[in-house]
Deep mutational scan, measured.
Amino acid sequence: MEVRTIKVFTTVDNINLHTQVVDMSMTYGQQFGPTYLDGADVTKIKPHNSHEGKTFYVLPNDDTLRVEAFEYYHTTDPSFLGRYMSALNHTKKWKYPQVNGLTSIKWADNNCYLATALLTLQQIELKFNPPALQDAYYRARAGEAANFCALILAYCNKTVGELGDVRETMSYLFQHANLDSCKRVLNVVCKTCGQQQTTLKGVEAVMYMGTLSYEQFKKGVQIPCTCGKQATKYLVQQESPFVMMSAPPAQYELKHGTFTCASEYTGNYQCGHYKHITSKETLYCIDGALLTKSSEYKGPITDVFYKENSYTTTIK
């Protein structure tokens, strides 16, 4: 009895394709271990004539594949690729409408935090270190965002349907971005203890939790000093293409032309909904596939993004 075979390709990165001759009487799992086709788990399936010449994702289970996976995804987590594939199996079914010149995501599976993050990423200057993220990001900007969303979920250790947080998501993504040249110098002034300067680099240099107003941050924000008295913390120097200011959701007025974009969060910790506000020729609110415009805006804002380049204080 002759062994019926077909020729397929296996890959971990969709760049390096490895030619395989597979036995049609055995499952993919018996031949390769966990195997995925377009995100779908085909591990328990036997090869079919229609699979001839198709590319299958496999887990990096030998040295060659491990090197290829690390170079593309910059992670050695053995569960990463499987999590990416199972997320992709959902995100490829989502709709990605162009809204006001940006790629958004039609609401499904509690994905409003991903839509808000995706919209924000198209408006701030950011370059990702893992080629996987950078490639998928370019495709997302062009309207094909399924891979990018699935990668975000995998890097953030999230599953489809789980509630997510924009600030946490951005923080994970910033860790995989090139923020080497970003720098922030802060000064804390206390009447009792004097003053202390701190220099922050990388992710810490672009994120701040405690106030939404970048102007206020430049002037000074009140913080408790270690001595128990009130101290003032203010920005001395900022070198970065953008800054992200966050605070627990509270009524906040966004003035046209003073910011790049913002995240609105309605609801409580267990259950809520994100919308995205962007400042173009007027203010726009993007909620999944829905767009509304207004000249002014007041609502429960939790993150505001500002364009920056270089700032030095005039406070002496």
Rank of each mutant, 00 (worst) to 15 (best):
R4F: 11
V8N: 06
V12R: 12
N14Y: 08
N14W: 09
N14S: 15
I15V: 10
N16S: 06
H18T: 11
T19S: 12
T19N: 11
Q20W: 11
M26F: 13
T27D: 11
G33I: 05
Y36W: 12
L37W: 14
D38E: 13
T43D: 09
T43A: 11
P47M: 05
E52N: 12
G53S: 11
K54W: 14
K54T: 13
V58A: 06
P60I: 08
L65S: 12
V67Q: 14
T76A: 14
D77G: 03
L81V: 14
R83G: 07
Y84D: 06
A87N: 10
K92V: 11
K92T: 11
W94I: 08
Y96S: 07
G101H: 00
L102M: 09
S104N: 05
W107A: 01
A108P: 08
L114S: 04
L114G: 01
T120R: 09
L121N: 03
L121F: 07
I124A: 02
I124R: 08
K127T: 14
F128G: 02
G143H: 07
E144Y: 11
A145I: 01
A146S: 14
N147L: 03
N147D: 15
C149I: 12
A150R: 06
L153I: 06
N157E: 07
K158C: 03
T159A: 15
G161C: 09
L163H: 09
M170N: 02
L173K: 04
Q175N: 13
A177D: 01
A177W: 02
A177N: 07
R184Q: 05
V185S: 05
N187L: 11
V189D: 14
C190N: 02
K191M: 13
Q195C: 15
L200M: 13
K201L: 10
A205Q: 02
A205L: 03
V206P: 04
M209C: 13
T211D: 08
L212E: 00
K218E: 01
K219Y: 04
G220K: 00
T226A: 15
G228K: 03
V243Y: 02
V243L: 05
M245R: 05
M245F: 14
S246A: 01
A247P: 04
P248D: 04
A250E: 10
G257Q: 01
F259N: 00
F259T: 01
S263C: 10
T266C: 03
H273T: 00
Y274V: 05
H276C: 09
I277S: 00
T278L: 08
L283S: 03
Y284G: 04
D287Q: 00
G288T: 01
L291Q: 01
L291A: 12
T292W: 02
K298S: 14
D303A: 02
V304Q: 02
V304L: 04
S310R: 13
Y311V: 03
T312H: 14
I315W: 15
